[in-house]
Simulated scan of single mutants.
Amino acid sequence: MDIALANALAPGGFVPLAIGAVTLFFQPRPDLLVTGDGHHIAAALPDGSYALLRHRAGDYIRDSMAEAAGTDMPFAALADVDHVECNRDFCRWSQGADAKRYVILASRGRDRIEGVEMAAACAVADIVISDRWLPRECIGRWMTIDRDSLATSGGLAFYLGKKPEAVATLRAGDGHPWRLPQQLSGNDEAVPTADPAR
């Protein structure tokens, strides 16, 4: 018998094992998961499963999201869920505990986003999420997440209970050589660094 297993089955080893199992059982599941690039979002559904913003995500993303969510249930397509409204560019839905529901607005298109057109939609959303840069007129009531903020926070897990919380994968001071420098997104205007005529 394996020594670690024998120790776990011993009377003294059973207590830590039981505490760990109970802790895992009562660990809250995230209401919303956002990948570090903002491209993929998984939203918790009432039946315990999750729905993906981009349902054609590959196995790597699905496996990563399933592990982060602590589920082995298959993912639904967010656009197919009854309470979700989607057009070509965005999906909007409510998320969270019964006592406090949050309106989520998430981008899924590739077209340029005009600030004037976005302002009203962002103003009635609690959380706005985009994998690209958002215009300055787009401000969510609680949190606005775009390419710039994700470069600092990394992936995010949202727990939308009585006291909502967003848990980031990166912390202040995290500086890893494998992190890529910030890139221009579809909404960024290219600014020349030098005058070629000189």
Results as ranks from 00 to 15, higher is better:
residue 143 M to E: 10
residue 56 R to T: 13
residue 72 D to K: 15
residue 74 P to S: 08
residue 47 D to Y: 11
residue 36 G to N: 05
residue 31 D to S: 15
residue 135 P to N: 07
residue 96 G to K: 04
residue 109 G to C: 08
residue 64 S to N: 11
residue 50 Y to H: 05
residue 143 M to L: 15
residue 93 W to I: 02
residue 100 K to F: 12
residue 120 A to H: 14
residue 125 A to K: 07
residue 33 L to M: 10
residue 139 I to W: 06
residue 102 Y to N: 07
residue 77 A to P: 03
residue 29 R to I: 03
residue 122 C to R: 03
residue 28 P to S: 10
residue 51 A to D: 05
residue 46 P to E: 10
residue 89 D to G: 09
residue 46 P to M: 06
residue 109 G to S: 12
residue 130 S to Y: 04
residue 57 A to P: 05
residue 70 G to V: 07
residue 119 A to H: 13
residue 146 D to P: 04
residue 150 L to K: 05
residue 65 M to W: 00
residue 141 R to N: 12
residue 128 V to W: 01
residue 119 A to E: 13
residue 41 I to N: 02
residue 107 S to R: 14
residue 57 A to W: 04
residue 101 R to D: 05
residue 138 C to Y: 02
residue 80 D to L: 09
residue 40 H to W: 07
residue 98 D to A: 15
residue 136 R to E: 10
residue 62 R to M: 09
residue 60 Y to L: 11
residue 75 F to T: 05
residue 98 D to I: 12
residue 65 M to I: 03
residue 141 R to I: 12
residue 87 N to R: 13
residue 31 D to Y: 07
residue 66 A to H: 01
residue 130 S to M: 03
residue 121 A to E: 12
residue 119 A to W: 01
residue 35 T to K: 02
residue 107 S to H: 13
residue 48 G to L: 11
residue 49 S to E: 01
residue 138 C to F: 03
residue 66 A to M: 01
residue 115 G to H: 14
residue 126 D to W: 05
residue 82 D to Q: 10
residue 97 A to L: 10
residue 72 D to A: 09
residue 84 V to W: 02
residue 66 A to Q: 02
residue 147 R to A: 15
residue 83 H to E: 11
residue 97 A to N: 14
residue 111 D to L: 08
residue 76 A to D: 08
residue 152 T to A: 14
residue 111 D to H: 13
residue 83 H to L: 07
residue 105 L to N: 01
residue 35 T to V: 10
residue 138 C to P: 04
residue 45 L to R: 15
residue 51 A to M: 06
residue 109 G to Q: 06
residue 35 T to Q: 04
residue 102 Y to M: 15
residue 141 R to E: 14
residue 120 A to C: 02
residue 53 L to D: 01
residue 60 Y to D: 11
residue 53 L to W: 01
residue 57 A to F: 03
residue 40 H to V: 02
residue 123 A to G: 12
residue 75 F to N: 02
residue 87 N to Y: 13
residue 133 W to R: 14
residue 80 D to E: 13
residue 87 N to I: 09
residue 48 G to W: 05
residue 61 I to Q: 11
residue 48 G to I: 05
residue 32 L to R: 09
residue 30 P to Y: 02
residue 31 D to M: 06
residue 135 P to T: 09
residue 116 V to M: 11
residue 46 P to K: 08
residue 125 A to G: 08
residue 151 A to F: 06
residue 50 Y to W: 09
residue 98 D to P: 06
residue 72 D to R: 15
residue 84 V to E: 02
residue 93 W to K: 02
residue 66 A to E: 02
residue 154 G to K: 09
residue 44 A to Y: 01
residue 150 L to E: 00
residue 72 D to G: 11
residue 153 S to T: 15
residue 79 A to S: 14
residue 39 H to Q: 10
